[in-house]
Design a protein around this nucleic acid. Structure first.
Length: 485
RNA sequence: GGCGCGUUCGUCUAGUGGCUUAGGACACCGCCCUCUCAAGGCGGGGAUCACGGGUUCGAAUCCCGUACGCGCUACCA
């Protein structure tokens, strides 16, 4: 097994969207596969007919691809071990369940839900340490079973867990784990509707698809003894297990919808860069052992190892995600940012206006260090796109003094005389006015900034003037003077 | 209740018996830079390493117990 190239899988159930916890699981599988020249498989675990969600699979695949996690085999893509939708593999599970019954490792159970419920209540009443099925149907005679089968009595198939032994297995992250078989229930393998449960389908598929490493969330650790029993019952080699720590809400419960966004698409729609989300989620439970925090996905591939995955759950901290998003944003080329910004403009109130790439690129240069999200290239500096409608009140009180109109007028006159001014020309012009008026530059700059942008904060004054252009600057100064008077 | 897993600054984490007066990052605060806001630089507060016992010359690191948290306990995954 050690010398085989690994085959791993991400096996979500199609609930309608990709959960960020799922993204992290998928990512670790992907990183592990790529790191070891292995294969990354996507398998859809849609064995619960009651939970069927229209379009869920398409959504899942879309989110995975958006994040850059391309799978080598899976629905749509295909592969040598398909089909990759469990609902299309029912006959396979049936065959293996029969094999188990043949071997005495599983058995038919005809107990009604009512009996099961009564049994459970009785066990609780007696304060039995653990409630589990009493193997009633295991003791049915062959004849009785045949009769019930022939009469079409509703049935399930149960795993026959032998009592009084210890089930042991190894886990890359948890090391050695043991369970007493007496604590393991005779799990249903095939439901009465003929569909398999997760446990059977998962084990059968992992074996048939030659999965070497099962990398999944910690919520599966408790059912791993059942899976181990199944591998042993079939006489199949067990895969290597790696149970990942959970992603947590701020209150340390399992990350859930109630306490914030959990869908990858929510984060995408909020403007998070895929590079940042992937980077962030990779660091939730793993690190290379050094201080590095900024990674692109191909760099993660080079550094990743399951051995360095933590045991304890990690709180999903939005503030750090925000910071990483800003970091990734700043590292992007203007070319990339221009096209991202254009997408945002299409969604904004400026969607009908035309802005040149060159103009947008100038805005990006001016604002790159001041924003965390692409959409802030619009929201925090609308004055680049439209004339300011109002002037920040606090700043008006502070910066617009009685002498301001005179100062602005002088600046305007100086600017008007400039011919196709550069940033430096604007600066020289302002210096000149500053000297002539014997007024500090700051005393001119703040009122000017407010006049031209309506705000008290923003990029460097002369960058701002240059980007707006002489004509626009002059117009805005005139409007501001009018406003003051 | 039972079983399992976990527990280092608010959060993500480094740390695998002496290099640790426990390091970094986010967040927070201050200073510098400066036309503002950022970015950047420098600095600060913040962790009796959950608690209690051992083992050892020496423990965040090994062992045991306790507490707490979380997960599982479905014909859900």
């Amino acid at each position: 097994m050690i010398n085989e190239t690994p085959r791993v899988r991400f096996a979500p159930s199609p609930t309608g969207y990709l959960h960020v916890g799922g993204l992290r699981t998928a990512l670790y599988n992907y990183l592990f596969a790529k790191r070891n020249n292995g294969t990354f498989v996507l398998r859809i675990e849609d064995t619960d007919r009651n939970r069927f969600v229209e379009g869920a699979v398409e959504n899942l695949i879309k989110a995975l691809k958006w994040a850059g996690l391309d799978f080598d085999e899976g629905p749509e893509t295909g592969g040598d071990f398909g089909p990759y939708m469990q609902s299309q593999r029912l006959d396979i599970y049936k065959k293996y369940a029969d094999e188990l019954i043949e071997k005495g490792k599983a058995y038919y159970c005809f107990c009604t839900p009512e009996r099961l419920k009564a049994l459970k209540e009785e066990q609780e009443k007696q304060k039995l340490p653990q409630a589990k099925y009493d193997k009633f149907c295991l003791h049915l005679t062959k004849k009785e079973v045949e009769n019930k089968l022939a009469s079409g009595t509703p049935k399930v198939v149960r795993l026959n867990v032998e009592e009084n032994h210890t089930i042991k297995f190894d886990d890359i992250i948890r090391e050695h784990v043991e369970f007493e078989s007496n604590n393991v229930d005779d799990q249903v393998l095939i439901k009465s509707d003929g569909y398999p449960t997760y446990h059977l389908a998962n084990v059968v598929d992992d074996h048939l698809m030659k999965i070497t490493h099962v990398i999944r969330g910690e919520e599966w650790l408790s059912s791993t003894p059942k899976h181990v029993l199944l591998y042993d019952a079939f006489d199949w080699e067990r895969p290597i297990f790696a149970h990942l720590p959970l992603l947590l809400n701020p209150d340390r419960s399992k990350l859930s919808k109630r306490q914030g966004d959990v869908a990858v698409e929510d984060y995408r729609d909020k403007g998070f860069l895929k590079d940042a989300l992937v980077n962030f989620v990779a660091l939730l439970g793993w690190n290379a052992g050094d201080d590095r925090e900024f990674y692109y996905i191909d760099e993660l591939i080079k550094s990743f190892s399951l051995e360095r995955v933590n045991k304890a759950g990690a709180v999903f901290d939005l503030q750090k995600l925000n910071w990483l998003n800003a970091e990734h944003l700043r590292k992007k080329s203007n070319e990339d940012l221009v096209s991202l910004l254009k997408e945002e403009i299409k969604k904004s109130k400026f969607k009908d206006q035309d802005f040149s790439d060159n103009f947008l690129s100038l805005i990006i240069d001016a604002m790159k260090e001041r924003v965390s999200f692409v959409k802030e290239f619009i929201d925090t500096c609308t004055y680049f796109y439209e004339v300011p409608f109002e002037y920040e009140q606090k700043s008006v009180e502070k910066n617009w003094k009685p002498e301001t109109p005179e100062h602005l007028n002088k600046l305007k006159e100086e600017f008007v005389s400039l011919n196709n001014p550069t940033k430096e020309d604007f600066e020289t012009a302002l210096s000149k006015v500053s000297e002539e008026l014997n007024v500090g530059k700051g005393k001119l700059i703040h009122p000017l900034r407010l006049s031209v942008s309506g705000q008290s904060t923003g990029p460097g004054m002369f960058d701002l003037l240059f980007i707006l252009g002489k004509d626009e600057v002059v117009k805005r100064i005139e409007a501001a003077i009018k406003r003051i008077n």
